[in-house]
Amino acid sequence: MARMKFLCDSERCIECNGCVTACKNEHELPWGVNRRRVVTINDGVPGEKSVSVSCMHCSDAPCMAVCPTDCFYKTEEGVVLHNKDACIGCGYCFFACPFGAPQFPNGPAAFGARGKMDKCTFCSGGPEENGSKAEFEKYGRNRISEGKLPACAEMCSTKALLAGDAPVISDIFRDRALRRGKAGDAAWGWTTAYGKPEAPAAKEGAK
């Protein structure tokens, strides 16, 4: 088994937020905790691009480096997880993370009052017995131990969000890029759906 990674195809993402909803539902996350978010660049402008972001399970994770209680660990599959029993809610990981992945249930509060950090687990739980009630309550559902992939990726309607073995999902993405041949809106997106703004296809017949 190689390293588990997420890969979001921005040519396909339609900003439906299905991944965000799937994640919140799967792990019964409290209000204010979003393990996954959809970020849109040039929102509302033709040609806008969206990408689904969560913990990217970095190979050299900065959160692991800055944690004062060393509560982070990496599984054999390359998934970055943490032990909530050791977390003191200091927020260093939030400042270190380039993706804004660490979430705090009590929101922006004073030191220690934020609550224990919560983040994407690649649906692989935490340091509790696989599939146990304690694991679900602290870290959410452990789909990986059930032989399934993260709920966000499996729920994605356009299959923009891929999750799994890095070489496998890279091959899937490469195959797509070769088949569509083009990049940008001409491949999959605004132009495909609505036509080019300077030469709309339906303009001739319109009154």
Partner: peptide, 11 residues
């Protein structure tokens, strides 16, 4: 630092 928490079971 080294991980200080309890060990996890493999999937």
């Amino acid at each position: 630092g080294d991980y200080q928490g309890k060990s996890d079971t493999r999937p």
